[in-house]
Nucleic acid binder design. Structure first.
Lengths: 342, 342
DNA sequence: CAGCCGCTCACATACGTATTCAGGCCCGTT
DNA sequence: AACGGGCCTGAATACGTATGTGAGCGGCTG
């Protein structure tokens, strides 16, 4: 009744009247096994509910068929919160891993030293998926360490100056530009940008660049009073909008560097009596689920989370298998909703 | 340089002038190792950036210091969406695992046969955390299989009739009752319940029970016309609200079995010209992030996601270590916001 | 001085699989 | 009939760690 030893390939072998290596070969689908033998082995294995021992298999083959997903969270957020966009990617990452018969380990990056190298050094995973940045300088140092160690990894984000690692990201610059051109097309001329333009937040920086270039393309330039720092939280977006109002500069549109920022900003603007979109058009970035149910529903630059997750996983697996894979710049798409009427 | 063989405990041993077992004992902190020797070994290990090979260690010790998180998603949702409440738990689960030096594997339940037993049978994980139900009959069958196999697992949800497994859940019945009593206290008498009352959705069933009991406690009874089925999606909530309106029954309050249902319902009600909370008071369940930023902000029965995640993990680890652990019923808390004014 | 004990350590081994190598069989060819 | 070549299988071994067992050594007791 149950609690006995788990069956091993030796047990199967004995019952099938063959040797252990034959069992291994048969169950792994290797060619060169007599079909009748294979059938017999498979049948017995199924009957005993046999599973290959992953630990033994990993030890022997020297790889684990496992990927590790590492979140680098902003250290200021003591919370368990993860960027909602990452949430959307997560499902896709999990599914794609399953499709490719890989397991997925998941973890936050700990503050502790060099823990990030553990996964591959300890042979827990064959490769790493890096999401987020956390502290930017630390992040870059860790990237360098990973490269030096020859670890396989992919990262979600913008290509960094030093070109470190296999980068998958969406076309932040293009998306920012498209959003701003859309606002210009609606006749808006005083467009505020809510989100850090610093290169320490590479995606935001790229979005800002696209924004600025679009303005320039229309013969306009960025008014420094209309660029307010914010990070990806609602509260930060609210604070930025408040600062914008307090600053007293005139504005008729907002491009937020993320949906959360936009949602926080809309709340403050509405509380201050601004009508959206009549007085202020608002566009966000990401297209998280909350965007479509905001009031008014938020126009936003969509990143295809499903494609993103799939691309990350498949690129990493390709990399592990030494196939020729490269970075990818995924397209964005402007989703027009009511927050940005004429 | 990098690409050479990873150091093993033998390498450390040779450099330290001791045997491999001594290295193993020293690094594992076992007593009975000369302090000087231990220090020497630790220093060399650090210098070589040595990590214990997890595969070998797992094979030898017969456990993996790894937990597996299995989502049973509603099979009808082809999407990568996960219940937002689970998202909130996820962070807490990850952190708690890390605190206890455990890794976390994560997966959706595949449709394929008995894949759920793989994790322990294949010795990938020492225990399982089960979230969600998917198809209820299938779920119960799998629970039974896990029990029969002697697998260690905990589940999030309501205690099932057959008492299968170590269950961690919140006090759904109490929470449902508190919400309804709050509405009654506001003078509402025609309270609709949006959410399946079927026992195939155990949490919803419990919430409904609490609701019905509270009504009974006030001398009222449930009007069947005011109970509309819905599952945890905004669209389903919207459809339920529409059905309620179409049904023509009078109602002055809604208790939704989840926040997503409530948010979807509010959208439809407002579109139909109902004022919230003046015409209809609305209460949700869960307190997902979107609840506080809904318009109007949603009154809801909070489940403490952080505590939930922590309790799941710690109970499971206790179980694995054969410590005396039991099921837990976590408290809920009514969070009053504007959707439920006087 | 014999005997004993506690402290450190080395030797040997097991965990369950995947893979290399070699051998046996059967068939067809010359 | 001898030989070569496929096809299938078994014997042996390595992966890197953790642990049971026993040995050497010094100090202490009687």
């Amino acid at each position: 009744m149950g609690m006995q030893r788990k069956p091993t390939s030796f047990d199967i072998a004995q019952l099938a009247g063959v040797s252990q290596p034959t069992v291994s070969r048969a169950l792994r689908g290797e060619s060169g096994v007599n079909p009748a033998t294979r059938l017999r082995i498979e049948s017995i294995a199924k009957q005993l509910n046999y599973r290959v021992d992953k630990a033994a298999s990993n030890l022997r083959t020297r790889h684990s068929q496992t990927l590790a997903l590492l979140f680098f969270e902003d250290p200021t957020s003591d919370d368990s919160l993860i960027n909602p966009f990452f949430h959307s990617m997560l499902g896709s990452i999990i599914r794609t891993c399953a499709e490719h018969n890989h397991d997925l380990l998941i973890s936050f990056q700990q503050l502790s030293s060099d823990w990030h190298t553990d996964y591959e050094d300890a042979r827990k995973a064959d490769g790493l998926i890096l999401l987020g940045y956390g502290d930017f300088e630390l992040y870059r140092a860790r990237l360098k360490a990973l490269r030096d160690a020859g670890t396989h990894f992919v990262r979600w984000g913008s290509v960094l100056a030093e070109g470190a690692g296999l980068t998958i990201g969406c076309d932040n610059r293009g998306g920012g530009g498209e959003a701003t051109r859309h606002l210009l097309g609606l006749g808006r001329k005083r467009i505020a940008f809510l989100g850090t333009a610093s290169s320490h937040y590479p995606e935001f920086h790229e979005r800002y660049r696209g924004h600025a270039e679009a303005l320039a393309g229309a013969g306009l330039s960025v008014d420094p009073a209309l660029q307010i720092d914010a990070i990806t939280t609602e509260d930060s977006g609210a604070a930025a909008a408040q600062a914008l109002l307090d600053g007293g500069a005139h504005f008729d549109a907002i491009l937020a560097a993320s949906d959360l920022i936009a949602i926080g900003a809309m709340r403050v603007l509405q509380a201050a009596g601004k009508r959206i979109p009549e007085d202020v058009s608002v566009i966000g970035f990401d297209d998280i689920p909350a965007a479509s149910s905001a009031s008014p529903p938020l126009t936003t630059v969509m990143q295809d989370a499903r494609l993103a997750g799939r691309t990350l996983v498949e690129t990493l697996i390709g990399r592990i298998r030494e196939k020729p894979v490269g970075p990818a710049l995924l397209p964005t798409k402007l989703i027009v909703r009511k927050s940005c009427g004429a």
